[in-house]
Nucleic acid binder design. Structure first.
Length: 314
DNA sequence: CACCAGGTACTGT
DNA sequence: ACAGTACATGGT
């Protein structure tokens, strides 16, 4: 086990803020996080001064995966433009944006469309069980997330409960397989050199946010929102601002008048505040790290508006 | 049995 | 460009 002293980190908020679907545990003890073919066992010290972790793969860069290389203070300062967002940040201070592997992130968020988090998790586990390989670490057993080439049986994929998304995932898996030099998942098959930054390093990362988004959105099952999730969670584009129903509600509630004013400035007689408008406004409002702001707002909204536990107990 | 859930693709103006 | 609508599945 490794000990890592790290400030400005909230493991629970980071894992449970909806960026990642494959984790087990609730913060009381160790979490088991599954990424690709790696299992990470990790918990945070009581006083929050650091983390204790182990990983099934020596070459997996846990620190990078957890976003611990980010200049946290600088990012927080940059997005703290007003008291409203500052309150959301205080609520889950230490939340980090993870650096996931692009293929798994893409596949996961294709499954997420028009669904809910418990079922998304269930679908992804089923995909891993159907096409991945059995892996184990410290007594915890599960299945690796399959490489795109491994998702080669459509009938089997249909069994995973994805509904109409099965077709999208299957086709996207094919595109990743056939364009491995572009989407390059380079897993260094022989040396097991797990490299959790690929797509982004080789191509997309060199593009502007707008250009990269255009490319990702070409994938079937990937629209504006999922594209932003991919770019933010796995390609280092922190100006991506995924707008889902939660963010739509939160932004309308918190910045309703500003949004209408922003729409008016653009000549849009929009009574309705569309997703595109919200994203553009967020980039203006929170700056180039607005993706971080999105993650705080999302977790803030979801943890706050969750139904309170039954009050009929003594 | 309606209704909802981290939207997307397709259609029509 | 922008609104409407169908879409699979599983849980209340």
């Amino acid at each position: 086990m490794n000990m890592l002293q790290i400030r400005d980190f909230n493991l629970k908020a980071t894992l449970e803020s909806g960026q990642l679907f494959r984790y087990h545990g609730s913060g009381d003890d160790f979490y088991y996080v599954v990424a690709g073919d790696a299992i990470i066992k990790i918990r945070q010290n009581r006083n929050g001064s650091g983390v204790e972790y182990g990983c099934s793969s020596d070459s997996f860069d846990v620190k990078k995966f957890l976003g611990l290389n980010h200049s946290y203070g600088k990012i927080i300062k940059s997005i703290s433009r007003d008291e409203k967002i500052a309150a959301a940040i205080r609520n889950h201070y230490g939340l980090r944006v993870l650096e996931q592997e692009p293929w798994e992130c893409t596949a996961s968020f294709i499954c997420s469309a028009f669904s809910n988090i418990p079922r998304i998790k269930q679908c992804i586990e089923k995909v891993a069980m159907a096409f991945g390989s059995s892996i184990e670490f410290d007594g915890f057993t599960t299945f690796s997330f399959p490489q795109p080439q491994q998702i080669n049986d459509f009938a089997k994929l249909k069994m995973c409960g994805l509904g109409y998304r099965a077709k999208y995932l299957f086709e996207t898996a094919r595109i990743f397989s056939n364009n491995s030099e572009y989407y390059s998942l380079q897993h260094n098959s022989a040396a097991s050199g797990m490299c959790n930054r690929t797509l982004s390093d080789l191509h997309l990362r060199k593009l502007s946010y707008e250009e990269a988004k255009k490319r990702v959105i070409e994938l079937p099952g990937v629209g504006s929102k999922v594209a932003d999730c991919i770019l933010l969670f796995s390609c280092g584009f922190y100006e991506a601002f995924p707008v889902d129903v939660w963010i739509h509600r939160a932004m309308s509630r918190m910045y309703g008048s500003e949004l209408r004013e922003f729409a008016a400035e653009r000549g849009l007689k929009a009574k309705k505040t569309g997703e595109k408008l919200i994203g553009d406004y967020a980039r203006l409002r929170f700056g180039k790290y607005c993706g971080y702001a999105q993650q705080f707002l999302f977790h803030h909204a979801r943890s706050g508006e969750k139904k309170p536990s039954p009050a009929h107990l003594p």
